[in-house]
Amino acid sequence: MLTVDFDRLGVGPGSRVIDIGCGAGRHSFEAYRRGADIVAFDQNADDLAEVAAMFEAMADACEAPEYAKAETVRGDALDLPYGNDEFDVVIASEILEHIPQDNQAVIELARVLKPGGALAVTVPRWLPERLCWALSDEYHANEGGHVRIYRADELRDKITARGLRYDHQDFAHALHSPFWWLKCAVGVRHDDHPLVSAYHRMLVWDMMSAPTLTRTAERLLNPLVGKSVALYFTKPVVRRAAR
């Protein structure tokens, strides 16, 4: 289940990509399949161990080109262990809402991106997220939980203030919004609730089968209740005047 549009980012053979806050690795795996040199970056050692195992399994199964490179790196998004202008593509999907010092994280995202490179940032969308917070404190008020709700224009301005050019906005995962509203209403830990489990089965079926009916429904609903908003930026190339 991808939130980021890899075609829009131009990820392909030889692209150097970092997936910051990679979690379970869904975007890292897609970059690897496309032949990129991918760094899956996170602070959670357990998640990174599983991502590394999947990279190895993908290589063994020839699910990624032989020339592609994949590695996992543990670290802090507020202090990335890379020099300036190192990556063609930077992805930060569903991470900034967890970080109290989000301005520092944005500085780091912009710093490691090459001039001419692309940045994709996704966060929970304001309205679906606001409803989740209203229905359940447990949804967000926990260790490592969400510390803020973004409006898209607020986040856009935070990033363009660091010198990046805003390119595009999109929405994703509309079918997941009602699922989370339902979980929040009955209790986020009550996965065995009949309605929650039934809806979850439908989502798994949708992800595995991608039927036309649900794919079309989600595409039509995304502008209204998409669970995530994705923002795309480019780092301008600074051209020096000839002497």
Rank of each mutant, 00 (worst) to 15 (best):
M1W: 10
T3K: 11
D5I: 11
F6A: 02
F6D: 00
L9I: 05
G12D: 08
G12Q: 01
G14V: 07
S15T: 15
S15F: 07
R16E: 05
D19A: 02
I20T: 03
G21C: 08
A24T: 13
G25R: 01
F29Y: 15
F29G: 12
E30A: 01
E30C: 02
A31E: 11
V39E: 01
A40M: 09
N44I: 04
A45G: 11
D46H: 05
A49E: 15
A49S: 15
E50R: 09
V51C: 01
A53M: 10
E56I: 04
E56R: 06
A57H: 06
M58R: 02
M58V: 10
A59I: 09
A59S: 14
A61M: 04
C62T: 08
E63V: 03
Y67L: 13
Y67M: 11
A68H: 05
K69D: 15
K69L: 13
T72E: 11
V73E: 06
R74P: 11
R74S: 14
D76L: 08
D79K: 09
L80Q: 01
G83L: 04
N84M: 06
E86T: 15
D88F: 08
A92T: 04
A92P: 07
S93M: 00
I95D: 00
E97P: 12
Q101S: 13
Q104W: 04
V106K: 02
I107K: 14
A110V: 09
V112M: 00
L113Y: 01
L113D: 06
P115Y: 01
G117N: 02
A118D: 08
L119A: 11
L119D: 11
A120P: 13
T122Q: 03
R125H: 10
L127V: 14
E129W: 04
R130H: 11
W133F: 08
W133L: 05
W133K: 05
L135H: 04
D137Y: 01
E143W: 04
R148Y: 04
R148K: 14
I149P: 12
Y150V: 13
A152I: 10
L155F: 04
L155W: 02
R156E: 05
D157G: 03
R162I: 04
Y166S: 07
Y166C: 08
D167P: 09
S177E: 01
P178N: 02
W180K: 06
W181R: 00
L182G: 00
A185I: 02
R189K: 10
D192G: 09
L195S: 06
A198N: 01
A198T: 05
Y199P: 10
L203A: 01
V204T: 03
D206R: 14
D206L: 07
D206K: 15
M207L: 13
M208G: 12
A210T: 06
A210L: 07
R219Y: 05
N222W: 01
V225C: 12
S228K: 05
S228P: 10
S228F: 14
L231H: 00
Y232S: 00
F233V: 14
K235Q: 08
K235M: 09
R240T: 11
A241L: 07
